[in-house]
Design a binder for these strands. Structure first.
Lengths: 201, 201
DNA sequence: GTCTATATACAGATAGAC
DNA sequence: GTCTATCTGTATATAGAC
């Protein structure tokens, strides 16, 4: 059973799209096979179970996330790195409005059944938080970096949920402008303030 | 077909518990019937379809939410009212760690399939945001109230997701302390600042 | 109003020809 | 390696006796 094939890749790609759009449980192997243009019976040559497809999808999301984080690292300041993360959310806000955050959606859905898939999804979320924490430490936030990182990621995730719930990409766009203010006023100056909207007074 | 019965109430109560814990799609009518101690075939006397149970669950959640909001209103300042909301999340943080936010979970899962159920769930989220907006307006935040309300609710929802993802109630407890600082420093003074962690400098 | 038995549909998974 | 046909389990939903 080859680890990498054209068909295998097509199946993973199809699964990523469909699972993001419909969720893991609502997506059938028949859906995935059809989207990938692979006969249903052939799916089992590449993946022993549906759960194995889930694992491959999470692996792929993990590679994407780490690539993105590497790109964001190229910004010259911690505040700009964190904003690059938010900017990516803005760039994909229409997908998010349609289908939600691919990582948040997996965590939400899979946390309910536990097991290794849930753990793998949780690791994605943890990686995002740790990366954010690293930036905040670099900005001089010290011991509060972990708590601020939790809140920063929570805020992005929550805004993805609202964007999806109301099918309104602008929610993410407007949010990015507020968080820009927060980054300039607090993170860029080595302070930490709970981030909702920049000060108006 | 009676609108209110002992058995009907038991079915809704069972559905609320199971749907929160397992999600809507993973929860079967057989699960609900068993938990409510009602024979499976009898379920259909009270609810025409599974979707009808979903509607009843959302209605019940809506009633609960509006009761809670009425209670929070009894606090004497807008900042304290908003904190009462967060305090309730802390009080239920162990349930959230186990099963996530009942409203956020519904929105996340149901947004993926659209339809009237998704709309009903979205209305719950909207009610939370509008209530928060009202408090922020009362605090004197003016035109930025809506955006700050979006971020406030997003932050609570995102923190619920992290709490559930990592099965760690303390995440919500620690967050509540930070948001307390944000409420005192900004909302209580009629300012608005994106809320991640109180200032440390 | 209540409950057993069952129809119907479709999911994940397998067997085995090619 | 590939694909058709099919097994098996289980979900929603219904029929109909009581």
């Amino acid at each position: 059973m080859p680890r990498t094939t054209d068909k295998r890749d097509r199946l993973i790609k199809a699964a990523k799209i469909l699972i993001r759009k419909q969720g893991f449980h609502l997506t059938t192997l028949a859906d995935i096979a059809q989207e990938a243009d692979v006969p249903l019976g052939n799916v089992y040559y590449y993946f022993k179970t549906k759960e194995a497809i889930g694992e491959a999808v999470i692996e792929s999301r993990s590679r994407e996330l780490h690539e993105s984080m590497a790109n964001w690292e190229e910004q010259s300041t911690p505040a700009e790195r964190l904003f690059a993360f938010v900017q990516q959310e803005v760039d994909h806000s229409e997908d998010t409005a349609r289908s939600g955050c691919p990582i948040g959606g997996l965590c939400q859905e899979l946390a309910k059944q536990g097991g290794t898939l849930a753990d793998a999804a949780a690791k994605l979320m943890n990686d995002m938080i740790e990366w954010s924490e690293k930036q905040l430490k670099a900005a001089g936030l010290g011991d509060s970096s972990r708590e601020v990182a939790n809140q920063f990621v929570a805020l992005v995730q929550g805004m993805s949920l609202l964007t999806n719930t109301f099918k309104e990409p602008k929610l993410m766009v407007n949010f990015s402008q507020s968080i820009r203010g927060w980054l300039d006023k607090t993170v860029a100056k080595g302070k930490a303030a709970t981030p909702i909207a920049e000060e108006i007074a």
